[in-house]
């Protein structure tokens, strides 16, 4: 079973829910893998320290144009849909803008004079960490400022073992990195908070998941803050409320120190196990 934990808005508690759910499940002896898919700002390892088993580099192939072989026909420039090739035929100048390249291979197909070769560029790493029997943490991490984290995320998810339970801690937002993550999940747990910002971004996430046809339910974090609009909206839309986590300074304190509330307070490990049961039930519906 693959569960993605996501939210449109940042800072609602994706990492909090993912890490605690993972901890509760592995404590019960369920072979689990947690994949940190927030590759631009991965944080799960701050909460779940582990022994690094191995580190893989993720590379992108970047074209290199040999201007000795190049006939300046301009076909690669025409084929590139990302404006990643600067082409000035009068000056016999041609160059690849590496930051804009998506590694699609079109220029290589376009070139008829064999002037394009490929070089590798590091765009991130995937670290596999052993965190206790029988669980593993996989962390996707992009190099800072890399154009898109999607290739790193996809590779990290592939790298996850075929454990009984795989939890994907998704990146914020609703664009490509989010889609690349939830696309692989059987079920999406959306984390929100009962504030206007939380509700607004929850609606965006729900629209997106409806569009791609993924089942989902909602966890309301920091319950007690804000107002009841989110509950009314969930009721109106008949969306399952999977769990409520109260707004509590103890939780905030524990989280801020990089610790897990499920480990320190058995009430919460039970609550996260219930969340897992609720998701299973939802999937059977």
């Amino acid at each position: 079973m693959i569960i993605a934990v996501a939210s449109g808005k940042g800072g609602t508690g994706k990492t909090f829910v993912s890490t605690n759910l993972f901890w509760a499940a592995q404590k019960q002896g369920i072979p689990s893998t947690l994949v940190d898919c927030d590759a631009e700002e991965p944080n799960d390892a701050e909460f779940i320290p582990g022994y690094v088993l191995n580190t893989q580099n993720v590379v992108q192939k970047i074209p290199v144009i040999d201007d000795q072989k190049c006939t300046f026909c301009g076909r690669c420039f025409d084929y590139c849909n990302y404006n990643a090739i600067v082409y000035l035929p009068d000056k016999r100048f041609i160059k690849v803008v590496e930051e804009l390249c998506h590694d699609c291979g079109a220029c290589t197909v376009a070139c008829t004079s064999g002037a394009i070769s490929l070089k590798e560029k590091a765009i991130g790493t995937i670290r596999k960490m052993y965190v206790g029997i029988p669980s593993v943490l996989v962390e996707a991490r992009t190099e800072i400022g890399v154009y898109s984290p999607v290739p790193v995320i996809k590779k990290a998810i592939k790298y996850a073992s075929d454990d009984v339970l795989i939890i994907l801690d998704a990146p914020p937002g609703i664009s490509c990195p989010f889609i690349a993550t939830v696309d692989k999940a059987d079920y999406v747990v959306l984390v929100t908070e009962p504030t206007p910002f939380g509700l607004n971004d929850l609606k965006l996430s729900v629209d997106t998941l409806d569009e791609i046809g993924k089942p989902y339910g909602v966890v309301v974090n920091r319950a007690g803050l804000g107002n009841s609009d989110v509950y009314l909206w969930l009721k109106e839309k008949k969306i399952s409320l999977l769990m409520e986590i109260p707004f509590d300074k103890e939780i905030a304190m524990v989280y801020s120190e990089g610790k897990l509330i499920a480990e320190l307070n058995s009430k919460y490990s039970d609550k996260f196990m219930q969340l897992l049961q609720s998701v299973k039930k939802e999937l059977k519906r």
Binding site: G10, F47, I144, S148, P172, E257
Partner: peptide, 25 residues
Amino acid sequence: PGTGCPVVSSLTGVKKVILVTEPSK
């Protein structure tokens, strides 16, 4: 949020960068 493409576009050429953080790991 993040450190990727939209963040780069948000900060190129600005005069000042204010980083908001919170006291958590």
